[in-house]
Amino acid sequence: MAEVRRFEHGSRVPGWDASVDLRKDPAGVPDPATTPVPAELRAEIEAQMAKYPDFRSAALPALAAVQRHHGWCSPEGIEQAACVMRLTPGYLTAVATFYDMFDTVPTGRNRVYVCTNISCSLRGADELCHRIEQLTADDADIQVKHFECLGACDIAPMVSVNGIYVGPVELDEVDELIDDVRNDRDPLPRKQLRLRPSADTLPMGDGQ
């Protein structure tokens, strides 16, 4: 930045410029000529844009694609998506930060969401979450987030591991669960929601 001259008639506020970083250019729509976009990501976003009457509807799928591709919604990734969609990165950032599932700070590759909403916490989710957080505190590979109701109160307390719902998770199963996550194994297969029969069809009195 050019040296800012003092006004002859007044002083500038001391310390005012301490946090200025004007080296960055304003963030307009990224120019394709200077924004390289991985071909795969471009193809994915363009395919999504084609699905909707208004291409902007593809903002969420595009951000999801960025997150898959870069591991998180990094500024670089957002710029790439903005470039393909002809939007400003600011627009996509506004969208990304609104939704809980988009990470706008770098994060672990494995996403473990622990539901701590009413029904789960009535069944011990807070302790469960605490236990999981303790166990993974220094594992940069695992992101643990306590989440609001994940829509599986029938298996409370429950956890979503990279999108796979498991529950009810007992405290003494946490070690095994995290072990599965660390080793890229199917998490707690016996507790996965996908295999659970409907409560409605079970004979009475067969609950836990």
């Binding site: 009413i118 029904s119 009535l122 069944r123 109160c153 029938d154 298996i155 409370a156 409907s198 409560a199 409605d200 079970l202 009195g205 067969d206 609950g207 836990q208």
Partner: peptide
């Protein structure tokens, strides 16, 4: 109806 919380058989019932 989704029943959850402090019940013995949480789940969906029609």
């Amino acid at each position: 109806v989704s029943v959850s919380g402090h019940v013995k058989r949480p789940g969906n019932y029609e």
